[in-house]
C-alpha cells in the first residue's frame, strides 16, 4: 500500500513538473493560441490557425487554444492546468482543445463567455466534426473546422439556426459583401425600412406642426407670488428586490469535468 502511494505521489509530482516546464516552454501568456507539441501541422498551417484564432479573439473576446501532445497524460487534467495558467494572466473566456496522440484522445472545454455562447447541441456538433476529421488524421482540417465552427456558433443568435457549412473558406467571419451577418440592423433592407419610418415620422410631424401649436405652459398664467406647496410628505414604505438570471448558461460536463472558481464551463471528450 505504502509503495503504491509513493508511486502515485511520484507520478503526480513528475506530471506536475512536466507540465510546469512544458507550460513555461509554451510561455502561456496569451500570446500564442496553437501549441503543436506533437508536430501535426506544418509551419504554414500553424500560422494560418494562429491568425484565425487571433481574429476571433479580437472580434468575440474568446481565446481559442489548440494543444497537441504525445505524452499520454490525461487530456482533461492537462486542459485544466492550462486554463489555470492562462486564467492567472487574466484570460478566462477560453475554448481549449487538447489532443493526445499517444492515448488518441481529444478533449475540449469552453469556459465562461465561450460557455455562454455555445449551446449543448453546438458542442455536440463540434465533437462530431472533430472526431471524424481526427479519425481520418486530417489534423489541419479538423482544427480549422473546429475554430471556424466554434466562431460561427458563438455568433449565431440562437440554437434554432446552427451554422452547418461544410469545408471551410479563407475568411469565415464575414459574408461576401463584407458586412456582419449576425445583426439584422446591418442588412440594407432593414435599414431602408427604418429610414422610411424615420422619414414618415418627420414628415408627419411637419404636417402636424404646419397649423401652429399651443405655446402656453402651466407657468404662463400661474401667479408665482401666491401659489405654493402648503405641505408635502414623502414617506418611505418598503423595498422589493427581484432577481433574474443574467444570461443563458449551460453548466454541464461531458467528461466529468466541472467549472473553476465560480465560472462556468462545458466540455466534451472523445477518442479517435
Amino acid at each position: 500500500m505504502k509503495r503504491i502511494y509513493k508511486r502515485g505521489a511520484l507520478i503526480v509530482f513528475v506530471t506536475a513538473l512536466f507540465m510546469l516546464t512544458a507550460f513555461s516552454v509554451f510561455g502561456v501568456t496569451g500570446e500564442r493560441h496553437i501549441y503543436d507539441e506533437a508536430n501535426l501541422l506544418t509551419d504554414e498551417e500553424e500560422m494560418e490557425l494562429e491568425n484565425l484564432a487571433r481574429k476571433i479573439r479580437s472580434q468575440l473576446h474568446v481565446f481559442i487554444a489548440i494543444i497537441t501532445k504525445e505524452d499520454g497524460t490525461d487530456v482533461a487534467d492537462y486542459a485544466a492546468e492550462f486554463y489555470q495558467r492562462i486564467a492567472a494572466n487574466g484570460i478566462t473566456d477560453t475554448l481549449i482543445l487538447t489532443v493526445d496522440m499517444e492515448a488518441r484522445e481529444f478533449h475540449f472545454v469552453a469556459h465562461n463567455r465561450a460557455d455562454e455562447l455555445l449551446y449543448d447541441d453546438e458542442l455536440d456538433e463540434l465533437y462530431d466534426t472533430l472526431g471524424s476529421y481526427l479519425s481520418a488524421e486530417d489534423f489541419f482540417t479538423a482544427f480549422h473546422a473546429f475554430i471556424r465552427d466554434a466562431h460561427d456558433y458563438m455568433l449565431a443568435p440562437d440554437m434554432d439556426e446552427p451554422r452547418t457549412g461544410d469545408g471551410y473558406s479563407a475568411d469565415p467571419i464575414t459574408t461576401s459583401d463584407g458586412t456582419r451577418e449576425d445583426n439584422i440592423f446591418y442588412l440594407w433592407w432593414v435599414q431602408l425600412i427604418i429610414a422610411g419610418l424615420i422619414a414618415a415620422g418627420i414628415v408627419g410631424y411637419m404636417a402636424y406642426m404646419a397649423g401652429g401649436k399651443v405655446t402656453v405652459t402651466q407657468g404662463t398664467y400661474l401667479d408665482h407670488a401666491t401659489s405654493k406647496i402648503r405641505s408635502r410628505r414623502d414617506i418611505y414604505l418598503r423595498t422589493v428586490v427581484t432577481k433574474t438570471k443574467r444570461t443563458k448558461s449551460n453548466n454541464h460536463s461531458g467528461g466529468g469535468f466541472g467549472g473553476f472558481s465560480g465560472g462556468s464551463s462545458s466540455s466534451r471528450r472523445g477518442s479517435f
Binding site: 401659489s227 408635502r232 418598503r238 432577481k243
Partner: peptide, 19 residues
C-alpha cells in the same frame, strides 16, 4: 449571475395652492 432590481416604494402627499 443575477441582475437585481430593487424597487423602493414611497407614499407621497401634496397639498398645493395654485392661483
Amino acid at each position: 449571475d443575477y441582475i437585481y432590481t430593487e424597487t423602493k416604494y414611497y407614499q407621497l402627499y401634496r397639498d398645493i395652492y395654485l392661483k
